[in-house]
Design a protein around this nucleic acid. Structure first.
Lengths: 319, 319
DNA sequence: CCAACCTGTGAGTATTTGCCCATCCTCGTA
DNA sequence: TACGAGGATGGGCAAATACTCACAGGTTGG
């Protein structure tokens, strides 16, 4: 008499045969049913079994395949709502190559929507590069709001504030923030934020449907420092306090917690919009930014990420 | 054979994405269409493209009892070092279905080795189909050497000479044989073989660690004849002399002995490498090739075989 | 011995996929 | 600028596939 195991092994054999006929030989299930002398439904079950039992392996031989794979893992590892991985070009030192195009594509996906949306934009080199990749289009029904001030320390318009570029290219209504990135004191910040126009912009930012931000590192070449928004002493103090990165000027430590005190008391940027009710996408890559990106993901300061293969690997490598 | 259309890299990227989403992530084409922002029909086209371009590879990972059994019996009956049996699809007239994938898998096993190897390759339709299934990989440390000439009777590159395809896909160093498959005379062959470069290639072939060859039949549609390497008269003469098959152009009789005289005096291919010190794998199946395969196994012209169920049965049935 | 249970089956039905065709867009040419 | 070839697109439809359900045959445990 046949034991259950033998029967099941036989069944797996049949499943393997059916799977082979289906996937490798390209038969239809009807043909398989005829060949194996069973009903089409049974054939379907066998084919299905061959997949669910892992008898059939499918592999994608294309550079993109690796990106998709990394993306899926990142998405589940950090419970992200959006992940986009672009192939790395190890030869190119550019911090924006590929990323800019991918970021622009994602921004355009939102702009193409017919229903009016509020799109919040941070600042930084990566974001600027992405905006430059945007296809000009007519989107007067959307609103684009800046999360950060657009006044550089010397009083001029901050170079890497990109809100005007966006509004220009896509013809949407724009809401810049006529503020310094970092106020001179907490009091000044409060004063500025209480101005009616700015208050409205802040409220608009809080209701953004989608947000795109860059991630800044706080190493020796921290963009905040290089662009003169913070002094060397302030940078050192932040580093000492454990800061590993910043979003729109908000410095945070390796846990993703905002650093208390220091420059954070004076950052005039809008708070990062809710990750519960909206999508906040970080666009960033690179060794230097890795700790910052990881921290932001861990504490869910963002729930979307556009990065490259190498960075994705780095994010998955640890822990 | 369909002419190779130049397809933009971007489209292949998209195809890869779609293929990944479909086969790996298990999305429906509707979902893919939504995610990529295209119509379902376009998604379907991309998925289909990813298969037809060979981006998606499917492999059956299960020892089907019947194939294992046949394989074990063949292995012991003919003292083989390697046997691989794939399921048969009795209805399909294709001479390569399934076999190509299995052959590619075995070739890949060798290519994946870290130590440098010399891999010799014969010629033929089956082998070409197998090569097309190879996954691109970087193997500059291996050497791939052709056993047969790559010049067709009309002077062009022989279509079924596959050495270039291999080298291309796996980036290894390749050693083709700039020779006709069959020289016009024994003298010409000697002359050609004495050329330094060719001599070196021949010596390399003799030292191959592993060899993959097809088996040609010598019936009315013998590939050697169909491809114009031998005349009808020569084919008839070979048949009369008892030839039942050929490896790389070397015709042999039912005992597996090389036919003396006739075209064998002029075959410009390298001799089949040693079965004592290396692995020589025949990849072949089909009723027509049965006598040839049997003869080659009997006299141990090869010590490895990749074939299908039906052929395996045929080999075991007689004697 | 019987009832509960499990496995596998076929029928019917909803969903998904493959393919044809009209149309649109692009680009080279007259 | 007009025009035609060639390729991409999306609608529609038939084929193929996946899923649900009720039931048959056999096993298990009382």
């Amino acid at each position: 008499m046949a034991t259950r195991q033998e029967i099941s092994a036989n069944r797996l054999d049949d499943a393997a045969r059916a799977g082979w006929l289906y996937y490798v030989a390209g038969n239809t299930q009807d043909q398989i049913a005829a060949k194996l002398g069973i009903s089409r439904q049974s054939a379907q079950r066998l084919v299905s079994l061959s997949v669910s039992e892992g008898l059939i392996k499918m592999r994608l031989d294309h550079p993109i395949g690796r990106c998709m794979d990394l993306g899926a893992r990142l998405k589940s590892r950090f419970s992200l709502d959006l992940v986009e991985i672009v192939p790395s070009d190890p030869e190119s030192p550019s911090t924006t190559i590929g990323l800019a195009e991918a970021g622009a594509a994602e921004i355009e996906r939102w702009l193409k929507l017919d229903e009016p949306r509020i799109i919040a934009i941070g600042t930084g080199r990566t974001l600027k590069a992405a905006i430059e990749q945007l296809t000009p289009m007519e989107c007067p029904h959307h609103k684009v709001v800046s999360l950060t001030g657009n006044i550089a320390p010397d009083g001029s318009a901050a170079f890497y504030n990109v809100i005007f570029n966006v509004a220009d290219v896509v013809k949407s209504r724009s809401f810049p923030m006529p503020l310094p990135v970092i106020a001179s004191s907490a009091q000044e910040r409060e004063m500025l934020h209480s101005q009616p126009m700015i208050r409205e912009t802040l409220e608009l930012a809080a209701r953004a449907d989608v947000t795109f931000v860059g991630v800044g590192d706080l190493g020796p070449q921290a963009p905040l420092y290089e662009d003169g928004f913070i002094t060397e002493a302030e940078l050192k103090a932040l580093q000492k306090a454990g800061a590993v990165g910043e979003l729109c000027g908000w410095a945070f430590n390796a846990d993703g917690r905002l650093i208390e005190g220091f420059t954070n008391d004076r950052v005039a940027s809008a708070p990062i919009p809710s990750r519960e009710t909206s999508l906040v996408v970080a666009i960033a890559k690179g060794e230097k930014k890795l700790p910052g990106i990881r921290a932001a993901l861990n504490r869910r300061l963002v729930n979307g990420l556009i990065t490259d293969e190498l960075t994705a690997e780095g994010l998955l490598a640890t822990e």
